[in-house]
Design a protein around this nucleic acid. Sequence first.
DNA 1: CCAACATACGGAACACGGTTCCGCATGGCA
DNA 2: TGCCATGCGGAACCGTGTTCCGTATGTTGG
Lengths: 195, 195
Amino acid sequence: MVGTDSGSGSSAKRKRADARRNEETLLDAAAAAFVTSGVDVPVRDIAARAGVGIGTIYRHFPTRADLIVAVYQHQVEACAEAGPTLLANSSTPHAALVRWIDLFVDFLVTKHGLAEALQSDDAAFETLHAYFIDRLVPVCARLLDAAATAGEIRPDMDAYELLRGVGNLCIGADHNPRYDARRMVGLLTEGLRLR
Amino acid sequence: MVGTDSGSGSSAKRKRADARRNEETLLDAAAAAFVTSGVDVPVRDIAARAGVGIGTIYRHFPTRADLIVAVYQHQVEACAEAGPTLLANSSTPHAALVRWIDLFVDFLVTKHGLAEALQSDDAAFETLHAYFIDRLVPVCARLLDAAATAGEIRPDMDAYELLRGVGNLCIGADHNPRYDARRMVGLLTEGLRLR
DNA sequence: CCAACATACGGAACACGGTTCCGCATGGCA
DNA sequence: TGCCATGCGGAACCGTGTTCCGTATGTTGG
């Protein structure tokens, strides 16, 4: 699992039935609201969509970050797990790295406002930061290490820094036809290459 | 000059003396506030610092963007003017491009929150966007063009997109010792290179 | 089945920051 | 000096995050 344990996990003292139901409903409502209004959608809107009071949402997900993490956990997990797979199945480590970063970019640019939230220094997004870093930095580090060992890229690249840079490049990628985050990220990974 | 004409310009019907004084005071207060609290400092704080009412600040600078533009106009101007100079004085167009982008990055990372504001899609920052784009994109385009003509970089790079990417990379550059925007931007310009 | 308790709920109320608006003050001018 | 356009202050309003408590309801022991 993943640590937050804010889900239907089997641990602890088993919550009340209505509480579990509400948590589920909220997750669905939030997912839908994120799609239509971005991850910055007002808390009240999510509550209204779920048909619950504002207090309920705060009780289950004390910060917006908790809600975002819960909604996107599966996808982040999938991305993390894709790392080793790509490394095993790609022609070179650098190719694996590029493909993995593509996955990450795909994920970010299709979630309205997520890239912004990810880089925000607002304390409310602390756990969001932490989750992404915990889960993805090690994967990225492994890919970087493999590529560096193979002599394909410069050896001094820090995984955290790279992910942060990639995340930054994804900001505003939706809602701006003149800006193509993928191309920019491509430039970045190209610049990483040893020549 | 620059178009906004929100300064002590000699055009129009010459404002009242107290109004001109207030505008000056506000500019100073805002500059100081931006330094200590970032460009997101509450409007009330700037007003308080300047010793004026809230209405006054809105009268002179209808949006936060107007204030930011007014405060940083000189520096943006200097950056824009440095473009041709660098092109004339550098060993190669690519070197000029890199040095110019360094200038831009230096400017952005030393203004707490400016990079964020620059990429925000909030309507309030519309004029900020517009000003930076109007002033800097042509300069960048000229540098890109020179470098492309010299065969140093790929010829398909759009100036707006590059500046946007660079701006994005500068987000969160202050207040995060683990992230070095300069290095990331360096990677980007390296990736631009033809090899 | 019922009582009693822990748990969870709803939403009013508060905090905060942006923005508007209008009655009042004042600089500039005849 | 008196008049008027210009400018000023800040109360008030709005949207949104967040807290808190009286009430409702699931759960469990008798």
